[in-house]
Design a protein around this nucleic acid. Sequence first.
DNA 1: AATCGATACATAAGTATTTTAGGTATTTAA
DNA 2: TTAAATACCTAAAATACTTATGTATCGATT
Lengths: 110, 110
Amino acid sequence: MNKSNLYKGCLEPILLKLLKENGRMYGYEMTQKVKALTAGELKITEGALYPLLHRLEAEGILEVEMENLGNRVRKYYSLTASGKKEQARSMIELEAFKNTLQLIFNPKLA
Amino acid sequence: MNKSNLYKGCLEPILLKLLKENGRMYGYEMTQKVKALTAGELKITEGALYPLLHRLEAEGILEVEMENLGNRVRKYYSLTASGKKEQARSMIELEAFKNTLQLIFNPKLA
DNA sequence: AATCGATACATAAGTATTTTAGGTATTTAA
DNA sequence: TTAAATACCTAAAATACTTATGTATCGATT
């Protein structure tokens, strides 16, 4: 998604946040949304995205609705009830992460 | 280092920062320092630490001095000139990372 | 004197996430 | 009509870390 290794592990929280904010999105839309939000800084690769969406669906965190556009199919994902809980948990984890990094990289502000 | 996946990719910047602040440290000392700084939140595992130290040394980012304590050996690591540049670059990358996450997770503040 | 926890190094197999590199097919704009 | 954009997908490889294990010394407790 970026040259930097730091983003590793961030994809799941990002997807959950996108779905929380937008309610209902399809994969390609997510890649475009992230590119737009970050002014091109962060690009979600499809090789990471689709397998993760499938895993989250299998885990019951996401649910899918197929939609037909002429001859094509679009798969809309949204958070299940369990997914909403997971999303909240994920944001708490992200906060803790931020605070821990603060302790290491900004040791002055204690 | 933590249950969370978010820390993946953070170990290298952390080590570089520790060495910038402390000048000269040995591996075990780094694990203790991080535990202390983060009140036990973040634990660097030796299985991740030592291979990384060896890689950074091989890349010329770190240099080593052996020190004898009685019958034991301690390996002190410090940043080379190239390592200092890399450390600075790493901090810039971390800032960019922080800002990008901000764009995704705090979209209000634009 | 023996044992346990802490100190201090190290490696190797396994796991999980992402990258890289493909593949299919439709729609739209040049 | 052809290229770029849209829209899905997978599989092999790379990467980073975990888990488990190993060696050995030192200091404190039993």
